[in-house]
Amino acid sequence: MKRSKTMELGVGLFMLAGILGLVFLGLRVSGLSLERPESSFELEANFANIGGLKPRARITMAGVTVGRVQSIELDTDWYDAHVIMELDGSLEDTLPEDSTAAILTSGLLGEQYIGLSVGGAPETLGEGDRIRDTQSALVLEELIQQFVSNMAKE
């Protein structure tokens, strides 16, 4: 009977360790946070070229992550990329209407993300509004092409 108790204790500890491990994987490795995700709102933006931007990419403001890219699709009216962004609810109706969105690259080989910068207009952006002033991703080949054609002119 005594031996069975220690065995039960061992199994209990084993399962507890497994659950704790899962919590560790959740919190420390995949960076889930315990507090409920706060309310969010959506903004849209059209880019002429998104480069290598992917869904779930970060959206930052002054380097601080404030949201994620929700979906990217081709806008067949203009044949450019239609990006839907999900931003922190605390930013709803606070961003000026003439804020700009640019696709940036972290480091030389890093992932691409959207950087927002604030404008100065009194009107603000709310749920489902569109950021009009956007800047496309830098595509290396296009830059090189421009450089080469400028060289040829000189």
Binding site: F14, A17, G18, G21, L22, L25
Partner: peptide
């Protein structure tokens, strides 16, 4: 069925 997933979690945690 119960033990292997738990062992896998342990493996991942210790590996990281």
């Amino acid at each position: 069925f119960v033990a292997l997933p738990l062992l896998t979690i342990g493996f991942g945690v210790v590996g990281v």
